[in-house]
Lab assay of single mutants.
Amino acid sequence: HYVEVNGKKIQATSAEEAEKIAKKFAKIYNATVLDLGNYYKVT
C-alpha cells in the first residue's frame, strides 16, 4: 500500500495507514483523495 502525492510515492504498512496519510496530505494541499484500489492518489 502506498500514497502518491505530487508524483512521489509514500509507502504505508496498511490500507488504513495509507488512507490516513492520503487524507492528511489532501487536507494540507486542499486536494482530493482518489482510492485506486491498491493505492491512494492525492490530486
Rank of each mutant, 00 (worst) to 15 (best):
H1M: 12
H1S: 09
Y2H: 04
Y2R: 01
V3T: 02
V3Q: 00
V3R: 00
E4R: 02
E4Y: 08
E4A: 03
V5Q: 01
N6V: 05
N6E: 05
G7Y: 03
G7Q: 03
G7A: 02
G7I: 02
K8F: 13
K8H: 14
K8M: 13
K9D: 01
K9R: 14
I10F: 09
I10V: 07
Q11G: 09
A12G: 03
T13A: 14
S14D: 07
S14G: 05
S14Q: 02
E16F: 09
E16M: 09
E16L: 11
E17Q: 11
A18S: 04
A18Y: 03
E19N: 08
E19I: 12
E19Y: 15
E19S: 11
K20L: 12
K20I: 10
K20W: 12
I21M: 11
I21P: 00
I21A: 02
A22I: 03
A22V: 05
A22C: 07
A22S: 03
A22M: 04
K23A: 10
K23Y: 13
K24E: 13
K24N: 10
K24Y: 15
F25P: 01
F25E: 02
F25T: 01
A26F: 04
A26M: 06
A26R: 03
A26P: 01
A26W: 05
A26V: 06
K27L: 12
K27D: 11
K27Y: 12
K27R: 10
Y29V: 05
Y29I: 06
Y29W: 10
A31H: 09
A31M: 15
A31K: 04
A31Q: 05
T32L: 12
T32P: 06
V33G: 01
V33K: 01
V33R: 00
L34D: 07
L34H: 09
L34I: 14
L34S: 07
D35E: 10
D35H: 15
D35K: 14
D35C: 12
D35S: 06
L36R: 04
L36Q: 07
G37S: 05
G37F: 08
G37V: 06
G37A: 06
G37W: 05
G37P: 02
N38W: 11
N38M: 10
N38F: 11
N38I: 09
N38E: 12
N38H: 13
N38D: 13
N38A: 10
Y39W: 11
Y39G: 11
Y40F: 14
Y40S: 04
K41N: 05
T43M: 13
T43H: 09
T43R: 04
T43F: 12
